[in-house]
Amino acid sequence: MTRTPLPAWVLVAATVGLTVVAVPLLGLAVRIPWADVPTLLTSTAATQALWLSLRTCTLSMLLATVLGLPVAMLLARLEGRRAVLVRTLAVLPMVLPPVVAGLVLLVTLGRRGVVGQHLAAAGIEIGFTTAAVVIAQTFVAMPFFIVSVEGALRTLDPAYEVAAATLGASPTTVLRRVTLPMVGPAVLAGMTMAFARSLGEFGATLAFAGSLQGTTRTMPLEIYLQRETDTDSALALSLVLIVLAAVLMALPAGVRALGSRGGRVA
């Protein structure tokens, strides 16, 4: 399919836009002490932070998927005011300042929180645990999953689902055999978005979970702390996060490319 050419000023503006993103990354690449990176990244604090981040982000991604998928399916079928209402609620954490997310979690699940005080009475205290990190990350990451999957579900041609139902498939079978396979790439994209957002989660974790090496101090918290004493170490850790984020963002497109090369219909 051929497209009309873009006006020249759009190309200029786009170049400016890309420069805004590229220059700071270039700045990091110039400033980073490349020779020391392996040593900096193998310190106990760094490896524990990385390992904790990978574990908690995997859990948050899975939770966001399990909890977010039904929400996305429901949302894709709603129309009008109800859709606006549910969508606003579902994506709200996406636009909340992270520290606000941390505060609402604290006043809800904290020791004196609305729910937390009953949990505390039962001997369950979430604050300062790895579970608190996972909860904070899931809270902020789930909207990204929901938005990604809902978009795909809405643009789906309902003819396939209708055909399956006409042939006698139950709603669950339609969902399992027709709908979900067709939105597979969007589910994958949503999962990587959720993982990436969890990886960057900072404010809510700091406010709700605290910061202790190996328990709650994830990569962003470790970077923030290292910055106080050792800028080089903070830069090396930042590099890891940037590389991880880049891989995550490229992953869904890469998988799709592989899929279509294999001759399957995406």
Binding site: L106, G110, R111, R112, A207, G210, L212, T216, L225
Partner: peptide
């Protein structure tokens, strides 16, 4: 043996004020 090592002294204060610590 702390449960958390905060970045700022005001964060320590906040965690005690809220009863979390």
């Amino acid at each position: 043996k702390p449960v958390s090592e905060e970045q700022k002294v005001t964060d320590v204060r906040g965690k005690v004020e809220s009863g979390e610590a």
